[in-house]
Amino acid sequence: MAVFIDLMLLGMLAITALRVIFLKDLFAVVMLFGIYSFLSALIFVNLDAVDVAFTEAAVGAGISTVLMLGTLALTGRKEKTNNHKSWLPLLVVVATGAALIYGTLDMPPFGDPNNPAQQHVAPRYIQDSPQEVGLPNMVTSVLASYRGFDTLGETAVVFAAAIGVFSLLGLPKRDRAAIESGLKSHLVLRVVAKLIIPLILLFALYVQFHGDYGPGGGFQAGVIAAAAIILYALVFGLPLATHVLQPSLLKVLAALGVLIYAGTGVVSLFLGGNFLDYNVLASDPIAGQHLGIIIIELGVGITVFAAMLAIFYAFAGQAERKNIP
């Protein structure tokens, strides 16, 4: 049954990708990409990767789509017909694809428990992490504890990308708060948005602090919280949103999150352990691990929230500037 569902979803995914190739209307292309992301999130659930599915649904389908639509508002929604030769790319793609499919024949069968990827460190994570780290969610244990240094790097990349977008586009000014914009005539939308934005923020907090026990964690929580504020900005207008959460505050928050993360590592150095070794943070190693993971997940959440929201502000500020002559 699982195979059947998997095949259906993969088939729908393939159709979506094919449609994207031939469409010239970029608005529809971006919407299809959102569908593509949701479908791949479903496939991730089917392949037992619930944390990944969660992230893909929030990030790929939510934030990516909003950012691409923001870009389309600035660059126009029609793709012009091109005069490229179409057979040459096709030839390259078919040749590469054939080579890759030939390569897959040497791979271990799908779902094989004796797959080399399942042999190396995975048994250690699966068998020992509930005792060593003390968390039911192995993904969180590996993410925050065993591979904590790696995750620090990823958080720094998100931070760096936010800085890159600032320097390319700049952040919107705060002082235009007097201008009332947004969807004034959509009364229903405004009422419902007011109703659900607090719920979304609450859910983000739940995801942040429940990530140790179920799917979730700092990355997802940061993105969901950012999505709540993005919804606010879309319905009530960017000036009001920047009045609530100022762009300068976001700059501080983005740096603060990375600082909390790296600071935890330094503290553990001073307490006599290795960098990001949480065992020394409390008297008991398990309590130390738990404390360390909560703190660094909080750092990740703050950075991701601030970076995603600041990137959205930068794009929305550009669009706003274009509208005001």
């Binding site: 005539s185 959509h186 229903v188 939308l189 419902v192 109703l195 659900i196 719920l199």
Partner: peptide
């Protein structure tokens, strides 16, 4: 509850935007 709040709103917003 969340779906019953949001999806009719989405349909409404879609139709209203088309009307506008």
């Amino acid at each position: 509850i969340f779906l019953l709040l949001t999806s009719p709103t989405a349909s409404h917003a879609l139709a209203k935007s088309a009307r506008h």
